[in-house]
Design a protein around this nucleic acid. Structure first.
Length: 499
RNA sequence: GGCGCGUUCGUCUAGCGGUUAGGACGCUGGCUUCUCACGUCGGUAACACGGGUUCGAUCCCCGUACGCGCUACCA
């Protein structure tokens, strides 16, 4: 099946190896350095990466820094660092140059200038001398009259001689001379067949008055010369596809396959934004989310292999991914599910790795270094993110809490006194208090006092921590050590006698 | 306003004309002879609406509603 776009053809196929025709997949992630990397942006990078790895292709990172006004200091560093930390490795790009570089658009201006000249010569583009103010006034009037906004075509037909002459003294932009009627029909691997009337397509600015290209020009030129086969990007670009396709047509180039991903949304379905929570990859990393969990979660927003399992390593994602099964509808970024998933990753983390990572998150917690691992292991299954560690550790490292009413009631019980007496007696005999030793002690205490279950355990828990909740008691007992166990239990005895 | 894209449990989704519409998160009940967490066994809840096409529509077509996106010398 072929869909005609003016004079050029567009192949309706995913363009992947399984089609029989061997082609090397080339994709690119092309962010603008305008701030911290957004999770939605990272999701796009991830899909490019996963698809490319699966196809054995080449993944390009290209920095689209054509807007001098929006450039943010440090943004490129943040971009590189985010990709690095999340394990999304590009094959070519900044620092990994090849013959198709450079990979910063600001360093490719000569190329755009040369290409746009071809367009000018062929009559596919023209200089527009309208000032930004004029354009703004036109737009305002259009809005007031409730007619479609857009460029009015004022400079569309300025004769070449006049244009050349004015260009010597006046500021201008270069616009694309888009078709005025007919329909642009194209195929998108996610959206299927899409049709947009040319009457809806504005004469897009290709080169700004500062001489820099706009996204549309730079993007098309770069994707062509970098031999990109699949454009995988956010849905917000769908409406500008006709301009891009027209550019390919004017240049006589074959356009890549289009893959427009569904957007990531806030809980209220609006486009994911900072106002409603963290949106930067860095925010999540700082909060102790695990890169693998973040990737796993993001990969499943817009695509799902089906089945009961939700936990996929990068390798598994690469193996299972199917570009033809990407969803069309936007996906709400649900932190609750991310939290669950991150907890899963922590629980399943290899002990040595966990301990090493966990130690980075102690902050100012004062710990008994020799028993730290015991405490960290005790707390492992209760973590959502690593940031929870200091808080979870206070039961080990802090002073006993002040008992609440229920705890006091428990402490006041007659059976508690006998349990305490027996407990102290039994652990005093021990050489060292370990988790196993603690269990033995509790068994012995139960046999001696006849108290069992909650009435046996809870007083000891409260005696040691002041609280009725917390990690497994044996860990706490071991962490505190024999002397501290005795000291804490006795202090309750003492208080009790005083009252 | 115009154009485009979309719509399955609250959320992420499976489904590709015939299913008790499945799974995961969340919430919730039991078990786990200390609590919480973990784990485990259950429960909960959905095809936006209206027309077609068809023996039969969640699935195909049309319309409506709603949502989102685009409508910049930003990407």
């Amino acid at each position: 099946m072929q869909i005609h776009i003016n004079s050029s053809n567009y192949q309706d196929q995913a363009g992947i190896k399984s089609k029989g025709e061997i082609m090397t997949v080339v994709t690119r992630f092309a962010p603008s350095p305008t701030g911290l990397v957004h999770v939605g942006s990272h999701r796009t990078a991830l899909y490019n990466y996963i698809f490319t790895r699966q196809q054995g292709g080449k993944f390009i990172l290209r920095v689209e820094d054509t807007d001098q006004n929006r450039y943010v200091e440090g943004a490129v560093e943040n971009l590189l660092s985010s990709l690095e930390q999340l394990g999304v490795k590009y094959d070519v790009g900044p620092g990994k140059e090849d013959e198709n570089g450079p990979y910063f658009q600001s360093k490719r201006r000569d190329i755009y200038t040369k290409e746009v000249q071809k367009l000018l010569n062929a009559g596919h583009a023209y200089r527009c001398f309208c000032s930004a103010e004029t354009l703004e006034a036109v737009r305002k009037e259009q809005m007031e009259k409730h007619i479609p906004t857009g460029y009015n075509g004022k400079c569309r037909n300025i004769p070449k001689e006049e244009s050349d002459k004015r260009a010597e003294t006046e500021d201008f932009v270069i616009r694309l001379k888009t078709p005025q009627d007919g329909v642009c029909a194209f195929h998108d691997i996610v959206r299927g067949d899409v049709r947009i009337s040319w009457s809806q397509v504005d004469d897009q600015v290709l080169v700004k008055s500062d001489g820099f290209p706009t996204y549309h020009l730079a993007n098309v030129v770069d994707d062509h010369y970098m031999q990109v086969t699949h454009i995988i990007r956010g849905e917000e670009w769908l409406p500008s596809v006709p301009k891009h396709l027209f550019l390919y047509d004017c240049f006589g180039w074959e356009p890549p396959r289009m893959v427009h991903l569904p957007l990531l949304l806030n809980a209220d379905k609006s486009k994911l934004s900072k106002r409603q929570g963290d949106v930067a990859v860095e925010d999540y990393l700082k909060k102790g989310y695990i890169p693998e969990a973040l990737n796993n979660f993001l990969a499943l927003l817009g695509w799902n292999p089906g089945g009961k399992n939700e936990i996929y390593s990068m390798e598994e994602l690469i193996a299972a991914f199917d570009i033809n099964k990407i969803n069309k509808a936007g996906a709400v970024f649900d932190v609750q599910k991310l939290n669950w998933m991150n907890g899963q990753y922590i629980k399943n983390m290899d002990t040595a790795k966990y301990l090493k990572e966990a130690r980075k998150w102690l902050e100012n917690t004062k710990v008994n270094e020799s028993k730290l691992d015991t405490a960290l292991m005790a707390v492992k299954t209760s973590l959502t993110t690593f940031q929870d560690i200091p808080d979870k550790l206070t039961v080990f490292t802090g002073d006993p809490a002040i008992p609440d009413a229920d705890a006091k009631e428990m402490l006041a019980l007659d059976s508690t006194r006998t349990v305490f007496t027996s407990y102290i007696e039994k652990i005093s005999i021990l050489e060292e208090l370990t988790v196993d030793g603690f269990k033995t002690v509790m068994q012995a205490a139960q046999a001696e006092t006849g108290v069992k279950g909650k009435l046996l355990w809870m007083p000891v828990r409260i005696g040691l921590t002041g609280e009725m909740h917390g990690p497994e008691l044996g860990y706490i007992a071991e962490y505190l050590g024999k002397e501290e166990n005795i000291r804490r239990i006795k202090s309750w005895e003492a208080k009790k006698q005083r009252s």
